[in-house]
């Protein structure tokens, strides 16, 4: 079992994907949280002249959409492109051919560890991003809008349920699957030369990003029926 799933390799990939992307993700997600609060506050005051619901509403947006999508897009640019570049380079230096000659399936050797790692990483990153994002949201609500801890949590409770958190993790897992598979596909179909690596990297980032947005829509639509 260890051998089939190449656990050590997967762990290395998790380190590459999750650990290296973590600072960037937390950084961006914190800013995004602040902006979400600012914007929600703006709209609430405009619509109902009352911003007591702002934290809850913002938290809902964060948990369901913002944190997971921003995280996934960031990971795509960083780790997705990196994976595609790495696999492309393996292809053009004929390492893939060498694997086949040794009777090893490229998909199990190259794709599977990265697939597992991406899914696991994205679940972890999403969980961390959600928490950090909510924390930043609280911080900004407290300092800027004058919400106390109690008010903040109260507002949250009206708007979000635990299943929001779980569903966002599920989204993260799906996005992880997408990123690794798209990077693998474009990496393996890379054309020769410096040109080829650039192209496959670009294409994998673009394709992953687009699929993430579309699948996010599809999942959001599906999940909406659970409410």
């Amino acid at each position: 079992m260890m051998k089939k799933f190449r656990i050590p390799e997967s762990m290395k990939q998790i380190e590459f994907i999750a650990w290296q992307s973590l600072p960037v993700v937390l950084f961006c997600v914190a800013f995004a949280a602040v902006v979400t609060i600012l914007e929600s506050s703006f709209h609430m005051r405009m619509a109902i002249q009352n911003d007591s619901m702002v934290p809850g509403f913002a938290a809902m947006l964060i948990l369901r959409e913002l944190a997971v999508v921003v995280t996934a897009l960031l990971v795509t640019s960083r780790a997705g492109a990196g994976m595609a570049a790495e696999i492309s380079s393996m292809k053009i230096t004929e390492q893939v051919e060498a694997l086949k000659m040794l009777g090893i399936q490229p998909w199990s050797y190259i794709w599977l560890p990265r697939f597992i790692a991406s899914v696991v990483s994205l679940v972890i990153l999403t969980a961390l991003a959600n928490s950090f994002c909510l924390f930043s949201a609280f911080w900004v609500s407290n300092i800027y809008l004058g919400f106390s801890q109690g008010m903040f949590i109260g507002s949250l409770q009206r708007f979000i349920q635990f299943q929001d958190f779980l569903l966002s993790l599920a989204k993260g897992a799906v996005f992880g699957a997408i990123i690794s598979t798209v990077s693998y596909y474009f990496g393996m179909n890379c054309k020769d030369g410096a040109d080829g690596v650039g192209n496959s990297t670009t294409n994998s980032v673009v394709c992953s990003s687009l699929l993430i947005i579309i699948v996010d829509f599809a999942l959001g639509y599906m999940f909406s029926f659970l409410y």
Binding site: F27, C28, F31, V70, R78, A81, A85, S88, A194, V205
Partner: peptide, 25 residues
């Protein structure tokens, strides 16, 4: 070389996104 091009693409994408998030804020 070829890998350097890949690295440049990654750096561009990541730093642009970070820059956008900060500018957005």
């Amino acid at each position: 070389g070829a890998l350097g091009v890949g690295r440049a693409v990654v750096k561009t994408a990541v730093i642009t996104m970070v820059g956008i998030v900060i500018a957005d804020w």
